Simulated assay, not measured.
Amino acid sequence: MISGLSGADWTLLTIAALLVGVAKTSIGGVGAISVALFAAVLPARESSGALLPLLIFGDLLAVAVYRRHVNWPLLLRLFPSVAVGILLGTVFVAWVDDTVMRRTIGGTLLAVVLVHLWQRRRPQTGTGRVRAAVFGLLAGFTTMVANAGGAVMSVYLLSAGFRKLEFLGTAAWFFLVVNVFKVPFSAGLGLIDGDSLGLNAALVGVVVVGAVLGRAAIKRVDQGRFEKLVLLFTVVSSLNLLR
């Protein structure tokens, strides 16, 4: 994997790793761009496994910074349906090709954003448990298929009215638990191996730089702009996956 990469490939992967760090400590929607960049350099299936260890490292950094700002009751409601979504995503990855996988994720993410915008114009009609089950299933499926669960969780946490720090802390713990849970499934599908781990080792320092930049940037972003940026990056990344 590493020996076949060109200078342009390394540039894109470095930018992606930088954005992983930024996403984990700042604007979560930026993380979807990392998914798209990895998929642009590597085959879609392999890119998912190659990105996962970097995401876990970013999760550890985010938990270290925001560990006190977490809503555990909400997470406990989400985890059962997330586990089901991950199992469904594992079966999906094992059976479909790259094109179908990319377009399925892109369409799902775009649909989630549209539903969120629609719900903002009218009172919520579902119960908290029903909404948690639906979003948990979507988050588990999309994170297993393309590490794109961040966009689903971003929309869910925004719809729940989370402020910046609680948003970031809850998301940090959620993805640390979920991404570690995904490791044996990804390894079983052959998406994580010695070659991909070598790529991770070359990029892990860039994630740290991104996390530091994200931490500095989030202090300058107000709540309204924060929500708009999350949705904007989610839409852009969704459209890219639909190509």
Rank of each mutant, 00 (worst) to 15 (best):
L232F: 15
R121E: 10
F135V: 08
M101N: 12
F185M: 15
V93K: 00
L52R: 01
R103A: 07
S48C: 11
G194W: 13
D222A: 00
I218D: 11
V155L: 15
T90K: 12
S154Y: 10
R77V: 03
R243W: 14
S237W: 10
P73E: 11
F233P: 00
V221G: 03
R121Y: 02
L18I: 09
L241P: 06
A44K: 01
L87D: 10
S238Q: 05
V145T: 09
G224A: 15
R121Q: 14
S237G: 05
F167V: 04
G29Y: 00
A39Q: 15
A32T: 15
R220T: 09
L55I: 13
V207G: 00
I15E: 09
L12P: 00
V100F: 01
A83N: 12
I33M: 12
D193Q: 05
F57Y: 12
T14Q: 07
V208F: 10
G31N: 05
A83Y: 11
N179K: 03
W10Y: 08
V145M: 00
L88Q: 09
V178F: 04
V65F: 07
V130W: 13
F135W: 02
T104P: 02
S26N: 13
L42S: 03
A160T: 13
F79M: 10
A8H: 09
F233I: 01
L138I: 13
L88F: 13
I56D: 02
S81T: 14
I105H: 02
L75T: 01
R45I: 05
V206K: 06
L191K: 02
L165K: 11
L42T: 09
L189S: 01
T234H: 08
Q223N: 11
F162P: 09
Y156V: 13
K228F: 06
V22H: 04
F92L: 14
H116T: 14
E46W: 14
L18V: 04
S154C: 07
V35I: 11
V180K: 02
L42H: 05
G150K: 03
V178W: 02
G214K: 04
R163E: 15
L110G: 03
D193W: 07
S154R: 09
G198M: 15
L13T: 07
T99Y: 06
Q223V: 11
T142H: 10
H116N: 12
A160Y: 05
S154P: 06
A111G: 10
D195L: 14
P80D: 11
L74P: 07
V134W: 00
A151V: 15
R122P: 09
R77H: 07
L176E: 03
Y156K: 04
D222K: 04
A40V: 07
G161P: 08
A146Y: 07
D98H: 05
A94I: 13
V235T: 10
S238Y: 13
W95T: 10
V134R: 00
A44I: 13
A160N: 06
G190I: 11
I33T: 06
V145A: 11
L5Q: 01
K228Q: 15
M1Y: 12
S34L: 08
M144Y: 06
Q119I: 04
G210K: 03
F57D: 03
I192T: 04
G128C: 03
F175V: 00
R45N: 08
A50P: 03
V82H: 05
L157K: 00
M101S: 14
W95L: 14
L110I: 07
V65Y: 11
G150E: 12
L5R: 03
F185R: 03
D193G: 12
V96D: 02
N200T: 08
I105F: 09
